[in-house]
Amino acid sequence: MTKSLQVGIIGASVDSGWAKESHVPAVQKLARLELAAVATSRQSTADAAAKAFGAKAAYGNAADLIRDPDVDLVSVCIRVPNHRELVLGAIAAGKHVYCEWPLGRNITETEEMAAAAHTAGVHAAIGLQTRMNPVAHRARDLVASGAIGRLLSARLYSGTAAFSPKIAAADSYLENAENGATLVSIHGGHALDLAIAVLGRLEDVIALATTQYPEIQVGDEAARQARLIPDHLLVQARLTGGGALSIEVAGGRPPEATQFRLEVVGDKGNLALDGGAPRGFPTGRLRLALNGEPQHVDDGETGAMPDTAANVAGIYAALRDDIALGTSTAPDFTHAVRLARLVDDVLSSAQTGTRKATADWPVQ
Rank of each mutant, 00 (worst) to 15 (best):
M1D: 13
T2Y: 03
L5R: 04
G11V: 07
S13L: 01
V14L: 12
V14G: 07
D15Y: 07
V24E: 01
V27F: 02
K29C: 00
L33H: 04
S41I: 15
A49N: 11
K51L: 09
A52D: 02
F53M: 07
A55Q: 02
G60D: 06
A63E: 15
D64G: 14
D68N: 09
C77H: 13
R84P: 04
E85A: 15
L86N: 04
L86C: 05
L86P: 06
L86S: 02
L88Y: 13
L88E: 12
A93D: 00
W101E: 12
L103M: 06
T108I: 15
P134I: 07
G146K: 13
A147W: 01
L152Y: 05
A169G: 01
S172Y: 05
Y173Q: 13
N176P: 01
G180N: 05
A181T: 13
T182I: 04
V184D: 11
H190V: 09
L202F: 05
D204S: 15
V205R: 06
L208W: 14
A209W: 00
P214F: 08
G219N: 05
A222L: 14
A222C: 12
G242M: 03
G243Q: 04
A244M: 12
L245T: 10
I247Q: 00
A250G: 08
G251D: 12
P254S: 02
T258P: 02
N270H: 14
P278K: 08
F281I: 05
P282R: 15
D299L: 12
T302D: 00
L319Q: 03
H335L: 09
L339S: 00
A340C: 05
A340R: 10
R341H: 12
L342N: 05
K356V: 03
K356I: 02
A359Q: 10
P362Q: 10
